[in-house]
């Protein structure tokens, strides 16, 4: 209305006459090169460089030929780009008995990782759900044992487990290694799931019980659909953990089942002939590729899952 407009102008004029229009107003401007900004971005940039330089050296070296590497400029980009080392690392490098590169190890790692991840997450999520939502006799004890399990160093248990697996008759087989990975993933994953399920509203669980849903119905139809972020977190933890595992792979399998990490070690540490740095670099990158891809694809969900109460007590 005209009245209102007039009032506004009058008010503005009054403000102007008092000089208040020239005073601070709205967002406070922040200078671009303040100490705060320099420290903040400076630290972040340094940290980023610190982590990225080794990766850069690896990629660059893997694309050089051996004569070029011998010139010794490890930071200079390749003069002549060659993919020969990558092909060799994947298909021809010699590891002990056979000379078919990392491809065999890759296959083994896949066959170890996929079942281990699925089985361990399935069991751990059910454990966590039971611990968080259902009261049962001995749950305190069970929980304490699990928490202790998370802190016992692996090395202590290796020999006993070797004996147990031998007695069962699966020592040295893929399934033996899968069982080991599942067991060792259990404490931390169960804690993770328990904390997540405990952070979901309790009334939801009560409502489902009043609606007549039992243990499995609540788990599959109420809890699971709400827990995608935490499943992604668990998957990332397990995939990277199991893929990068070296110790269990050496101890619990025979050479024909060695995972990629063990093969990588055999390639890099082979004592015969010249050190082929470019092949070693390519092989290392190839081995690290799977966890790297997993992070890139699911990084967003990972952060969301962590934020969604995964780390809350």
């Amino acid at each position: 209305m005209a009245d209102q407009a007039t009032l506004n102008t009058v008010a503005a004029a009054a403000d102007a006459s008092r000089g208040s229009l020239s005073g601070p107003r709205g967002n406070r401007p922040r200078p671009l090169f303040s100490t705060r900004n320099i420290v903040l971005y400076g630290t972040l940039t340094l940290a980023a460089i610190y982590y990225l330089v080794p990766l850069y050296v690896m990629v660059v070296t893997s694309l050089k030929s051996m004569p070029e590497i011998r010139m010794g400029n490890i930071f200079s980009p390749p003069v002549e780009i060659t993919f020969e080392p990558w092909v060799k690392a994947w298909a021809q490098a010699c590891t002990g008995l056979n000379c078919d590169g990392l491809s065999r190890g890759f296959g083994n790692s896949i066959r170890i990782t996929i079942p281990s991840v699925i089985i361990s997450i399935l069991i751990a999520s059910i454990n966590g759900y039971a611990l968080a939502n259902w009261r049962f006799k001995g749950m305190e004890t069970f929980f304490t044992v699990l928490v202790i399990g998370a802190f016992i160093p692996y090395q202590v248990m290796i020999y006993p487990i070797v004996i147990v697996l031998r007695e069962i008759g699966i020592y040295g087989t893929l399934s033996g290694l899968i069982v080991v990975h599942t067991i060792f993933g259990m404490p931390i994953l169960t804690l993770l799931f328990r904390n997540y399920f405990a952070s979901l509203p309790e009334e939801l669980f009560k409502a489902a019980r009043v609606d007549g849903a039992g243990f499995w119905n609540i788990y599959f139809r109420i809890m699971l659909p709400m827990s995608l972020p935490i499943f992604v977190v668990a998957m990332i933890i397990q995939i990277t953990g199991i893929w990068n595992d070296f110790l269990f792979g050496v101890v619990f399998t025979r050479p024909e089942y060695y995972p990629m990490t063990v093969q990588l070690n055999n390639i890099v540490n082979s004592v015969q002939g010249v050190k082929e740095y470019n092949v070693n670099m390519a092989a290392t990158i190839l081995t690290g590729l799977v966890p790297l891809i997993v992070y890139f694809v699911s990084g967003k969900l990972f952060v969301r899952g962590i934020a969604a109460g995964a780390v809350k007590g």
């Binding site: 509203p201 009334e203 939801l204 009560k206 409502a207 019980r209 009043v210 609606d211 007549g212 109420i222």
Partner: peptide
């Protein structure tokens, strides 16, 4: 709970 002939409404609604 399901066999008691009750229905319950919660403060936080508790909708799935």
């Amino acid at each position: 709970p399901k066999d008691r002939g009750i229905g319950m409404v919660f403060q936080s609604y508790a909708l799935y």
